[in-house]
């Protein structure tokens, strides 16, 4: 089995290798062509080393995300350099912070606006499960209820080192993907036919409702 390699960090030092190995097994269950395999490696190398994240932050974790980009932690070293403000150009959305009921449709829409391949990293307790605000009436308990999450980074907020580690885990996950063959891109039933979101800025006057009142 081919193991994803991260520069200067041994494979064994990463946690949760079992999940990754199970994934590799599942993805490689079909045989692949040598040429296609080599092409896959090239593509994965490109994708995993050039993760441009969307500038998306709702609360405290966003500040740690900013320090990650600043002088001391400098995630540009890994090729995550460019944070894009337009979701169309981003490869990765870091859900840094609490997602509330009001924000949930916005986050879903941002995710839908991103171009494939796209990855989601849930940063901090709030994004993973609601964190300290789990019992609140207005907080979504985990972003994985609305969008698929690739990597969870626990912490409240996680240290920048933890976020870097999470990003490396994501790189490992990307490195075992297969672009050709389609095993890992097969959409599940019902995934493709979501109801469209209707958005309007036009004033809506519900005359019927008003006249009743």
């Amino acid at each position: 089995m081919k193991k994803p390699n991260i520069k200067s960090i041994p494979y064994e030092e990463f946690k949760d290798n079992e999940t990754l190995e199970a994934l590799i097994k599942e993805i490689n269950s079909e045989r692949t062509n040598v040429v296609v395999g080599a092409l896959d490696d090239l593509i994965n190398w490109g994708r995993s080393n050039s993760m441009w994240s969307l500038t998306f932050a709702t609360s405290c974790c966003g500040i740690e995300f900013m320090s990650l980009g600043a002088a001391r932690y400098d995630f540009a070293r890994f090729g995550f350099e460019v944070t894009r403000n337009s979701p169309r150009q981003a490869d990765l959305i870091m859900v840094a912070g609490t997602i509330t009921h009001k924000m949930a449709p916005v986050l879903k829409r941002l995710y839908d606006q991103m171009a494939d391949p796209k990855y989601v990293v849930a940063v901090g307790g709030c994004a993973i499960s609601g964190g300290p605000f789990k019992s609140s009436y207005h907080v979504l308990n985990g972003v994985d209820k609305i969008i698929p999450v690739d990597v969870y980074i626990p912490g409240c907020p996680p240290r920048p080192e933890a976020i870097l580690y999470g990003m490396m885990q994501l790189q490992r996950k990307v490195k075992i993907e297969k672009f050709f063959g389609g095993k890992n891109h097969r959409a599940k039933k019902g995934e493709m036919n979501n109801d469209p979101i209707i958005v309007t800025n036009a004033p809506i006057i519900d005359n019927e409702k008003l006249s009743k009142e």
């Binding site: 009436y137 004033p203 809506i204």
Partner: peptide, 23 residues
């Protein structure tokens, strides 16, 4: 006396419609 149950206020995934109406 507010009822916090999920059934009354579920996570609504449709976008909020902006009210431009003043009552």
């Amino acid at each position: 006396d507010y009822d916090e149950s999920e059934a009354i206020n579920p996570v609504r995934m449709e976008s909020e419609i902006t009210e431009d109406v003043q009552r």
